[in-house]
């Protein structure tokens, strides 16, 4: 028996819903409310668990073709690209409270552009830098000055 994508997803969901279902019985309840805080989560989790079981069974019932071939060059490139985007955004979010919105945004916009499409000429590098600085400057000016949305300041830079 070999599980497909759906089967694995179903098993993960089943496991987590059962674990949370167990945890829901530990929740304290107030005498004022006839049903405790665990009442509704238990309904949702039971539905989720039941649906996950069906998903796994459906997956088992379906005959699986041979295991997919190893990712081709293009598919691997896509994976690296997606992981790269997450990494750059993660770094942005992590660094923003340290560097401040303005500095972090310049680095992020520049970094992500380069990650998505590596610039090949001085002209493209310039375009990249201009977009990065302009995005940061314009959003900061518009939001902080005109729209009164206060953006994070850096703990390291105070800026």
């Amino acid at each position: 028996m070999r599980l497909g994508r759906d089967g694995i997803a179903g098993l993960i969901l089943l496991g987590s819903s059962l674990a949370l279902l167990g945890a829901s019985f530990d929740l304290p309840s107030l005498p004022l409310v006839p049903v405790g805080p665990g009442f509704y989560p238990r309904i949702v989790l039971s539905v989720l668990a039941a649906a996950s079981v069906v998903l796994v069974l459906q997956d088992i019932a379906r005959a699986h073709a041979a295991a997919p071939a190893a990712p081709a060059g293009a598919a691997r490139r896509v994976r690296v690209l997606v992981a790269g985007v997450f990494a750059v955004v993660g770094a942005y979010v992590f660094l923003m409270p340290l560097l401040g919105f303005r500095v972090a945004t310049v680095l992020f916009v520049g970094g992500l552009q380069a990650a998505l499409e590596w610039p090949r000429s001085t002209r493209q590098w310039t375009a990249l830098a201009v977009v990065a600085v302009a995005t940061s400057a314009v959003t900061y000016l518009v939001f902080e000055r005109y729209l009164l949305v206060l953006l994070p300041r850096g703990r390291w830079t105070g800026f």
Partner: peptide
Amino acid sequence: MGKLLSTVFAVALATA
């Protein structure tokens, strides 16, 4: 790029 970065940090420092 390096030049740009150092400029940015200089500006940041000054404002700080």
